[in-house]
Amino acid sequence: MLKRITYLSLAAAGSFFFSSCEKVIDVDIKESPSQLVIEGNIRDGDTDGMIKVTRSVSYTDPNSYPAVTDAEIIVTDKAGFTWHPQQRDVPGEYYFRIEGHPGETYTMNVKVDGKEYIAKSTMPQPVQLDSIGITLLTFGNEERKVVAAYFKDPKGVQNQYRYQLYVNGKLTKRVYANDDRLTDGNDIKEQLFYQDDEDNEEINEGDVVQVQMQCIDRPVFKYWLTLADQSQNGPGGGVTPGNPPSNISGGALGYFSAHTLRMESLTVK
């Protein structure tokens, strides 16, 4: 949250100084060898878990990522129950029916080309999302609509949250992650700061917004927090970017997250 203030203060200074001007440039980037990308998600309740296995592409390639269709995947819990995710319609997406239990630690084992990639994730206890609302940020007379999530953080436990914001069914291109380091045990109003830019459009009357709130474990939080920091490219170029710390061993990109999921929607008036 405090980081956000710095962001806002730069925005304020910017409104005075920066006749900030953008232009698309050519950059000289060499082709990079393709990396394995694993994205594993299990949520609480009786639903589908899904593990997506793809490969990265060179910067210069189109944004289409080759699916890995011959992965052997096993998911286990502490008691030794095992699941064998299988592909359905979409190549590279491996599904399995699972009843996710908060407190349970799940292990994902992915075998591709004889190499093993292993990750563990513990599903935190759920925190209920009470409601969402629209708050107004006032810059002078200009008002900006910002979606806020309201909930009560449980006292005495370390909680980490990740949010995804959908506007009219479309995922906004912003990473939100926060923990209760400074807010333990309180009524939380988490504002999902959002600026209209090339990637995202401003929120208007009549839009349907949805917030999905995940309770995530610490390593997964560090993963999203690193991505959130890097997408915040303020003046000076922001922080030096790097690959977020993955909880998957074996050298794959991505993460394996066992989380609880709560969501709320509303129509902007």
């Binding site: 980037i29 990079s32 990308v37 990265s56 170029g237 970017p241």
Partner: peptide, 29 residues
């Protein structure tokens, strides 16, 4: 200045995410 440009890209969480290899191996104009 020396900067780190992405070497590749992939998709996680529905977002284009960049893959980095060498630190500060690129140059701003």
């Amino acid at each position: 200045n020396a900067v780190t440009y992405p070497a590749g890209k992939y998709n996680v969480g529905g977002l284009t995410t960049y893959y980095y290899t060498d630190r500060n191996a690129n140059r701003m104009p």
